[in-house]
């Protein structure tokens, strides 16, 4: 079993889904508390350090324009809110970024979320969110030799689900 397989199995177990289906070598489709999304695992690095982490991918409403947003927490030392950078897109992308950054429900949900990447893109004509967490990942080091699994703790699971739900609601109240 590869690290990707091991990580997917563990993440799915810790998500406690109602349903899960392996749809590709690196991907599992899940339904958790009524929310449907995919978990994608990928390994970065090979020789000295192997990090296999999980990205949670949710598909939203149709969006015909090009769009790529990057979400970060705002604040210097403590998280105070959410900020959205427009990587790709026109006026509608900027409007979407402003809308999401100002959404109080999304801010409250994402504030405790320990994500390392949070992107929103338009893929195949639909809005798609991709959230990679610090947890739900496996780190293998060669020296010192160590394998470490960072669990998807309950607080992170709950924050993830709340963030996805908040995104769904925010998307529903905006249009191109």
């Amino acid at each position: 079993m590869s690290d990707v397989d091991a990580v997917l199995r563990r993440v799915v177990a810790e998500l406690r889904p109602d349903r899960s289906t392996r749809v590709a070598g690196d991907r599992v489709a899940v339904e958790v508390d009524g929310q449907s999304f995919a978990v994608r695992a990928a390994t970065r690095g090979r020789m000295m350090l192997r990090i296999t982490d999980s990205t949670f991918v949710a598909t939203g409403p149709a969006w015909p324009d090009p769009l790529a947003l990057e979400a970060t927490h705002s604040g210097r030392l403590h998280r105070t809110g959410m900020a959205m950078k427009v990587r790709t897109g026109n006026a509608s992308a900027h409007a979407m970024a402003e809308h999401l950054a100002a959404d109080p429900a999304l801010r409250d949900a994402a504030l405790p979320l320990d994500f390392t990447r949070f992107g929103i893109t338009a893929e195949d004509g639909h809005l798609t969110s991709s959230i990679t967490l610090m947890g739900a990942s496996m780190t293998r080091m060669r020296v010192p030799p160590n394998t470490s699994w960072i669990r998807l703790h309950d607080d992170q699971r709950d924050a993830l689900l709340a963030t996805m739900a908040a995104l769904d609601r925010a998307w529903a109240t905006t249009s191109t």
């Binding site: 000295m48 780190t139 020296v143 960072i150 992170q156």
Partner: peptide, 19 residues
């Protein structure tokens, strides 16, 4: 590269232990 590996890997392990 060796130092960078330690700096990239160990903090992740400590994060997991702290959680």
């Amino acid at each position: 590269a060796t130092l960078n590996t330690l700096l990239a890997g160990i903090p992740r392990i400590l994060y997991g232990m702290a959680k």
